[in-house]
């Protein structure tokens, strides 16, 4: 691998991420997150001349006309030009305003707002809240600004996150082989599942595909409970390597009398306590065999049982844009 290729890949990935994020944001963000709050408004009795001055002073091109917070209409810069042209600039504005203008609600998503801009071709929309009160005004520029603002924040988070990931991966590579060894006591139902839980946690941190993770968990759990239920005590050893999990369960006896029967579904020698707790379905060994990619049992009466299983791991599919070179 040479450096330029890695760089190109990384920047392509970053481009992809940026597009997806912007698309995501227009669904996440609401009109109220992007709009101008407390817009400049005028009263119905105000003259068009007064509104012309308002527009000049605030450098805006449209003024909502309200009464007690309720939106009555809108005067645009076009209305002012017409008034100057035709000589009625001193009329009260309610005579010439556009009544019942199209509005947006403050809870609309930005994607809906963009659609409304496209549909009507207006430069701005008054925004109403749930109580029908004018609460803001929004332009296409406000939407772009809000997106840029949020993208910046997300980008900063992403950079910080990436640094953490790199540090984690380096730590991982140093210790890519994890060995978990646990002694297991006969009849200790309370502890069942502890080793498999630790194994699952490690596999999850390594980004192993959930399906392989589940299969490994089933094998470890059944092996662990087998020792608890059937043996006089033993040990479970789980070795987690980058490409596979190796599980060895060894006990000190008594050994399995009829291994051929034990490998059949539904055959069990579990005692009443184990059965009461939901064990002893007679599916332990068959489950393990089905879940493992490689499975072996060696047993000798009076000596003990050694169960060996291997599960091949593959990494979970990563989302585009988050793949490293």
């Amino acid at each position: 691998m040479n450096n330029p290729t890695v760089k190109d890949k990384a920047s392509n990935a970053a481009d992809k991420r940026r597009v997806t994020l912007a698309q995501l944001l227009v669904y996440e963000l609401r009109v109220r997150d992007a709009m101008h709050k407390d817009p400049v408004t005028a009263q119905p009795s105000d003259s068009l001349r007064a509104i012309q001055h308002l527009m000049k002073k605030h450098r805006i091109s449209g003024v909502p006309i309200t009464e007690n917070g309720r939106l009555l209409g809108v005067i645009s810069i076009e209305d002012i030009i017409n008034a100057l042209d035709k000589g009625y600039i001193n009329d009260p504005c309610d005579k010439w305003m556009t009544r019942d203008p199209v509005t947006l609600r403050d809870h609309y998503t930005l994607v809906r707002a963009v659609a409304e801009f496209d549909r009507h071709g207006f430069g701005r929309f008054p925004v109403l809240d749930a109580c029908e009160q004018l609460t803001g005004i929004i332009t296409r520029g406000d939407i772009s600004n809000a997106l840029v603002h949020h993208l910046e924040a997300r980008a900063e988070q992403a950079v910080a996150h990436e640094a953490v990931l790199v540090a984690e991966r380096q730590a991982d590579e140093k210790a890519h082989r994890v060995v978990l060894r646990t002694p297991i006591k006969s009849g200790d139902f309370e502890s069942a599942g502890k080793v498999s839980q630790r194994m699952r946690e490690t596999l999850r941190q390594r980004g192993i595909d959930p399906e392989a993770r589940r299969r490994a968990a089933i094998v470890a759990y059944e092996a662990e409970t087998n020792i608890i239920i059937h043996s006089i005590g033993g040990e479970l050893r789980v070795v987690i390597e980058p490409e596979r999990v190796v599980i060895d369960a060894m006990d000190q006896g008594p050994g399995i009398e009829r291994l051929d029967l034990a490998m059949q579904e539904g055959w069990s020698t579990a005692g009443p306590l184990a059965r009461q707790l939901g064990f002893g379905a007679g599916m332990g060994l068959p489950n393990m065999k089905k879940s493992a990619d490689h499975f072996e049992v060696r047993t000798e009466l009076g000596i003990g049982t050694h169960l060996h299983a291997e599960i091949v791991l593959k990494k979970a599919e990563l989302n585009p844009g988050t793949t490293a070179s």
């Binding site: 139902f189 309370e190 069942a192 599942g193 498999s196 839980q197 699952r200 959930p210 589940r214 968990a217 089933i218 759990y221 409970t225 707790l277 939901g278 064990f279």
Partner: peptide
């Protein structure tokens, strides 16, 4: 109907 803690182990194991 099982209420033993292994219920939780099995549930989380199988997602």
């Amino acid at each position: 109907i099982q209420v033993h803690r292994n219920v939780v182990s099995v549930a989380s194991m199988k997602d």
